[in-house]
Design a protein around this nucleic acid. Structure first.
Length: 427
DNA sequence: TGACGTCAAGATCCG
DNA sequence: CGGATCTTGACGTCA
């Protein structure tokens, strides 16, 4: 099966939220405000947002996406008594239809606080409730068994053997509906990938390999990523869909295990080349989410259409200009040849630019470019406000935050679709 | 008891 | 009063 964009054998995706995509923000509430009315309102909003995210995913050839556990506020808590899958049945079905039409594979990932192997029966009970909740979301969407729920094994409690035993015992008691979706992943503290494979061998649960967790807590320093990916491949059966792995890079300025702001393209391509040809879905874990997913897809897809790079350039343009006029002009040169497909070179320059500091002069220059969209249509008051902010910015008396806010309002008011998608306002 | 991770909501302060 | 900035929430484990 060939789709418009992307290698049909490898899907690359991102988790939970779409950076810089309008109207995709998830909402939440705190416990004391969680009335039925409030919860229903937030669920409705979050489903609208999810629908927008799926539209974005389809438009951008993204065929792998993790749905946020916060889609339904207090989804696994008795505080939320709503029959939400019935109440919003049509909405779920519509989004499920989008997912299937887009050929998108979805998953969910309960956080570090869902602990199936806890010695505390109350904690286990809540973990089971939480798994049931995640299952309920995926079932409401009509997703098949390839839509997985990714779980960590839990804690050690001074006795790893017993902790593993408790995990498998509790796993056996889960409903079949949960079991068919549940997969386990190595973590960076307690259970390394060899532990996961052992549990997998004993239970048949598919194993997810996370490269960064393994780098922090290696099972065997002599074994490389490909070795573990091959080992995990054998744990995935036909009904499970393609093997899934997690890929991320270490943020050099933060503690071991912390993700980077963006996926550095050269590091990713090194990794990708080593696993190319394997039928693997890659979930990226990174702060800039969809931006890195699009980057990695465009740099690996056999469908090499320069207009897809140009679309991304349109979004990055002013964020690049604000940091590096030099990279800006080099990218313009790069994209002049319409017969080429310089995706990797493009992203290298974007990474170089986004890694640069914003100077006052460059901030003024970029703001003036954006202001150019409005200077002839704005009213006198708007003009005066922008002129004032430009002067402050030029004299280093303010950051670009104030003028960006005003320019964003103008983009909304005059409905400039091009600028509403611009990362100038986001990065 | 606080750190861990994660994101918005909520709270507070400012002009 | 709108907007900027700081704090809290919600979860379980472990030092």
């Amino acid at each position: 099966m060939k789709t418009e964009k992307g290698n049909p054998d490898i899907s690359i995706g991102y988790a939970c939220l779409a950076v810089g995509v309008p109207n995709t923000e998830q909402r939440s509430c705190i416990l004391k405000n969680a009335t039925g009315e409030k919860l229903a309102e937030i669920i409705g909003h979050n489903l609208d947002a999810l629908e927008k995210i799926m539209e974005y995913n389809s438009r951008n050839g993204i065929r792998l996406f993790r749905i946020s556990s916060d889609l339904i506020p207090f989804g696994s808590s008795p505080v939320n008594q709503l029959d939400w899958d019935r109440m919003f049945e049509r909405r779920f079905q519509a989004i499920g239809g989008q997912i299937r039409t887009g050929g998108i594979r979805v998953s969910m990932h309960p956080g570090q606080y869902t602990v199936l192997n806890s010695p505390d029966p109350g904690v286990v009970e809540r973990a089971v409730d939480d798994l049931r909740y995640h299952c309920r979301v995926l079932s409401a969407l009509g997703a098949d068994a390839s839509a997985k729920i990714i779980l960590h094994v839990g804690g050690i409690y001074n006795d790893k053997k017993t902790a593993v035993k408790r995990f498998t015992t509790n796993w056996r008691q889960l409903d079949d509906g949960i079991k068919r979706r549940l997969v386990i992943e190595n973590d960076d503290k307690c259970f390394n990938i060899a532990d996961i494979l052992e549990i997998s061998a004993a239970t048949g649960i598919p194993a997810i390999y996370d490269n960064l967790h393994n780098a922090v807590k290696p099972a065997d320093p002599a074994a490389d990523d490909l070795y573990w990916i091959k080992e995990c491949a054998a744990t995935w059966s036909a009904g499970d869909g393609a093997q899934k792995i997690h890929y991320s890079q270490q943020n050099p300025n933060k503690k071991p295990g912390s993700h980077t702001g963006t996926i550095a393209i050269d590091g990713f391509l090194d990794f990708y080349r080593r696993i190319d040809g394997r039928c693997v879905d890659i979930m990226l874990e990174v702060k800039d989410k969809n931006l890195s997913a699009v980057k990695c897809i465009l740099c690996t897809t056999p469908v090499r259409q320069i207009r897809n790079i140009e679309t991304e350039w349109g979004r990055y343009k002013y964020a690049v200009l604000e940091r590096s006029p030099s990279a800006y002009s080099r990218i313009r040169e790069l994209l002049k040849d319409k017969s080429g497909y310089p995706a990797v070179e493009f992203y290298r320059l974007v990474e170089e630019a986004l890694g640069s500091e914003i100077t006052a002069g460059n901030a003024v220059n970029a703001a003036q470019h954006v202001w150019g969209y409005f200077k002839d249509i704005a009213d006198a008051k708007e003009k005066q406000a922008i002129e004032k902010d430009l002067a402050l910015l030029a004299g280093s008396q303010s950051s670009s935050a104030a003028i960006k806010r005003k320019l964003w309002k103008l983009a909304v008011k005059y409905n400039s679709a091009y600028l509403l998608d611009s990362l100038y306002f986001i990065l």
